[in-house]
Design a protein around this nucleic acid. Structure first.
Lengths: 264, 264
DNA sequence: GATAACTTACTAACCAGTTAGTGAATATGA
DNA sequence: TCATATTCACTAACTGGTTAGTAAGTTATC
């Protein structure tokens, strides 16, 4: 993590710089939205000059698109992995729901970016999301719906609109995190605390066990099994809006601004 | 709706002007967010001069707060009404869920403003929402949770964490509307079409009938009864981002800009 | 004629994007 | 292998369009 040791090749350092910019952009855009984020601040947080943003990306919007994609790449991998497991439709669905819950707090930026992007989409500017919708959500949702159809056909799950089960299972998670700040305001309890998250993920799985399985005893067993198989992940950088100290390292002017230009 | 007929008193007209500004603000803020909305455009849409915004409201943020409150006043009334009905806990919960679903498309601005405000809250600026959390959401959620506890205690509802039922029931609705633009992109089907809404509200209620009632036949009857008792409301102004023609009326300069100042 | 409602015309700050350059790394070629 | 040409990564300082906000007025109503 130390940057002071300069990487060998120029290309390597460039890649790292680009990544630093992208990370800063993800944080700023997820916190303030496309309109609210400031390029100046992204640059500062990345420890570079603002003009460098335009060296790597052709516009603020372009940087936003890249940040969005970068954030998604983080979750894309482990999202699909779980789908291939060998288990009944019901158990898989429970597992998928639990994973989606866990991803919501291990990758908070993705969730926030999504929320904002959904608002933006409502008013038209869709082009950016079109690809992600196509490549990521569409196959994901189709697979889940197929899974549910099989589960219903086999008599394991209740005979209701399969998409509704999807909406209820995933929506409960989304709603929990979406309203977390409101809940904190209204009740003084922070739903993002580890103990609260622990309680909620258990409740979410147990609810599904009772709600969507025809045989509720079987559902309870499935829930217990999935919970036991999936320990709660770390919640390391939950509110990592802090500006890292290393940004000072590359400076050519002293932080206090009083001069000493290194070159010339 | 005609503005050309001048209202009698000065105070009345002032109230109307204020209301026009507020309506325009709700539309603009809900479409573009606090940072993205432009005061100039709000003024234009309200058919007044920008300076007038600052006659009625002391700043953009102040106007935003007023718009938020105004939007909420629209839904506050009918939100509580349904709670007082005489029915079992389960039936009430189903009814509340259906009402929340219907409100999502009859008052789209409230939903959008909420979504954005939730993102803003995540990063700290809470003061504005604190009152609404206290006066609106807290009593609402407490009542729902009490209802669910009773329903569980009486043996009507499944014995799981009552809050989880709330998250699942309301979250399914929120998730449906939240992801609507994404669904449209991914599948080419618009979830905001009347026929799709009709299908979804039915599925939502029927799902609850099967999911949260211990006696699923009883649940099915409850679902059918609630659906029959609650016809789907009109969906009149679903995408009313259009600027109304009346804004021209108050103009003193021709729309094309070529002059003719009326006075002097 | 006094006050409320509303506008014109302006300003100061902000902020995305640009320009003109610098030093360091890397390629070239003798 | 050394010297020199060229490209790469990066910065300070600026530009001009945009935008929230204001001051000083005009018109309408009581």
């Amino acid at each position: 993590m130390t940057v002071s040791a300069p990487s060998r090749t120029q290309a390597e350092r460039a890649d790292q710089t680009r990544a630093r910019i992208l990370n800063a952009a993800v944080r700023q855009f997820s916190a303030n939205g496309l309109a609210g984020a400031r390029t100046e601040q992204i640059a500062e947080e990345a420890g570079v000059n603002k003009a460098l943003l335009y060296y790597y990306f052709k516009s603020k919007e372009d940087l936003y698109a890249a940040a969005l994609e970068s954030a998604f790449d983080d979750v894309r991998v482990d999202s699909v992995a779980v789908m291939e497991k060998d288990a009944t439709a019901g158990e898989r669905l429970v597992q998928i729901t639990l994973n989606s819950f866990d991803r919501s707090y291990t990758h908070p930026a993705v969730r926030t970016l999504m929320q904002q992007e959904m608002v933006r989409l409502h008013q038209g500017e869709e082009n950016r999301m079109a690809q992600m919708a196509e490549k990521f959500f569409r196959p994901m949702w189709i697979k889940v719906d197929e899974l549910l159809e099989n589960g219903i056909a086999s008599g394991e799950l209740i005979a209701v609109d399969p998409q509704q089960i999807r909406y209820a299972a995933l929506g409960a998670n989304v709603f929990y995190f979406l309203t977390a700040p409101l809940t904190k305001l209204a009740f003084g309890i922070d739903p993002m605390e580890r103990s609260k998250l622990e309680h909620r993920r258990k409740a979410a799985v147990e609810y599904l066990g009772q709600a969507i399985f025809i045989d509720r005893e079987h559902g309870a067993r499935v829930a217990a099994r999935v919970l036991a198989a999936t320990p709660m992940p770390q919640t390391n950088r939950l509110q990592s809006n802090k500006i890292e100290a290393r940004k000072i390292a590359n400076r050519k002017i002293k932080p206090d601004g009083t001069g000493e230009v290194r070159y010339k």
